[in-house]
Design a protein around this nucleic acid. Sequence first.
RNA 1: UCCGGUGUAGCUCAAUGGUAGAGCAAUUCGCUGUUAACGAAGAGGUUGCAGGUUCGAGUCCUGCCACCGGAG
Length: 371
Amino acid sequence: MIEFKIIKSSKKSKARLGILKTENGEIKTPSLVPVATQAVVKTLTSEEVLETKTQVLICNTFHLHLRAVSNLHKFMNWPKPLMSDSGGFQVFCLGFGQDHNVGKILKSKGNKTISHGQQPKSLKITDRGVFFKSPIDGRQLFLGPKESIRRQEALGADIIFTFDECTSSLADKEYTEKSLEKTHNWAEQCLQLKKTKQALYGIVQGGKYEDLRQKSAKTIGSMDFDGFGIGGEFGDDKRKLGKTLAIVNNELPYQKPRHLLGIGYPEDIKLIVAQGIDTFDCTVPTHYARRGIAFTPEGRLNLNQMKYSKDKKPIDRDCRCSVCKNYSRNYITHLLRAKEITALRLLTFHNLYYFNTLVEKIREDIENDKL
RNA sequence: UCCGGUGUAGCUCAAUGGUAGAGCAAUUCGCUGUUAACGAAGAGGUUGCAGGUUCGAGUCCUGCCACCGGAG
């Protein structure tokens, strides 16, 4: 059960300022949703995550399915709102994504394409669902709309998602179109199957094809979901992302919350908010932290680099997080070079705080008619 | 002083007398609903020094130097 209130709609853009109420508290939107795939923000405790201004986390049904986890809030000691992703992204990243060694956003041109009828090497996609091979023990494991919803009900997140197929950026139009029919069909089934009061978001797909995006948004948008996820790839440049979101959001019911799945870098956030996105999850702050990258107003700092080993400044002079207050760049560089895991903890903490502060400023910008 | 051993990339070590390699480190790059404290690439050499044997020497021979161990 959620309630979404739009407090203010921008006159300068399609941005909205809102409050998303759940049984576990409110989310001021727009909001970042940090990723806690395995019921943990990697390297941090839930108490530490609370200190990063994080309002809500997203866990993953596929990974937690493997571990037979349930009752997430209690399990991970997270008192605030939670989302759970359906496992649909794993259909891509453990399938064609792995086969072709590509992310969901295509960087290089001239690759092979995926056409209708093709199957990934290590999983099988059928009309009923997907056969996976467990990365833990190789055991075969099936996830379809029913299995995903049942698992997500057991996990008990406040907001859950329909089981979808996130298509590869290499998928051709026919493949994407057929996949979309399946995703729509699964969405309908998820809606029928859900028995709990959890909010269910339907996921819009369609890849880089604008007509398919519009069709998907119309279809999913007309179903009785509590909110909407927008998934898949959006082409390889930011203008395309903005345009796709414009097309999709134009079709979705205005009053319901919209979640953009798996975007973005700091430079993406203003753009997606200006297109009317209310929440968005992204691994970037936490993932890059574990690669030694700190985000700052000047851009990304690669603290692995020797040049920071004598730099006594904090990561970001203007950041008020406890890492920037107490530690210097050269300390973190030292920890990274010494392979001390605390480096990853400090960077994860800072990056989350930094991203959340960035989004907080964006909310203020909407409030003050600057965005 | 004598005897023995070892000297090859920054480090640890490979290389039947036939184009000197690997791992780690260092450097640079990549990462957008996390199989990810990951992955990729380039760079790095007068093989301790000086001679000799040989078509050809990291490898065999001689001398020297350095380090390690043992004896005194």
